[in-house]
């Protein structure tokens, strides 16, 4: 029993020492106490539907819209932009959505920008997988910073769209050459 305890304590201390050291020294370290609780309260204040929002939502973010609002935008001809990975886009996406993976933005933006540049004043709707995915939020913030004023975030995303049975498509986008 004593051996068990001493071995466990050894492993725990070793992990703590290396964990602290790596976090302090190596790049990409994080704060010891995150602002998660603050995020929770911000989220609760931002919208009536707190569980449908990403953890990092801020009060000055582009507006979040729910499924009925997204359907309304879709029918009104808003431009939908898919922030997920290309493989996920190929497997299925909202009909007519552009492919613009946020994590590979610089790579795909040159193919998307010429398509939407003249429509800057239109409504844009970003989405990703759904709850707990934040790519749509990051993409919306970025698009707004590029001068697209009317960006909305459909945070229910692909999951809710599918459940709802909205129009979908799969495969590569028609107009974008990049694969």
């Amino acid at each position: 029993m004593k051996r068990l305890i001493s071995q466990v304590v050894f492993l725990v201390i070793a992990a703590a020492v290396f964990g602290v050291a790596r976090n302090e020294v190596a790049p990409g370290g994080i704060d010891w106490v995150g602002d998660w609780e603050q995020r929770d309260s911000v989220i609760a204040a931002v919208q009536d539907n707190p569980e449908a929002l990403p953890p990092s939502a801020q009060p000055d973010d582009p507006p979040f819209i729910n499924l009925p609002q997204a359907v309304e935008k879709f029918e009104a001809g808003a431009i939908f932009i898919d922030a997920r990975e290309p493989e996920e886009y190929a497997a299925g996406h909202i009909e007519g959505a552009y492919r613009l993976p946020f994590e590979r933005f610089d790579e795909f933006w040159p193919f998307v920008e010429p398509e939407i540049y003249d429509d800057k004043d239109k409504d844009f709707v970003t989405y990703c997988s759904g709850a707990e995915c934040e790519l749509s939020l990051f993409l919306a913030r970025h698009l707004r910073s590029l001068g697209y004023k009317n960006v909305f975030i459909f945070f229910g995303g692909w999951t809710q769209w599918q459940d709802h049975g909205g129009p979908v498509a799969s495969g590569e986008p028609d107009s974008q050459q990049q694969s």
Partner: peptide, 12 residues
């Protein structure tokens, strides 16, 4: 709890 999340993620 939110205040423990990061320390746990560093240590685990």
């Amino acid at each position: 709890p939110g205040s423990l999340v990061n320390a746990f993620a560093i240590f685990l």
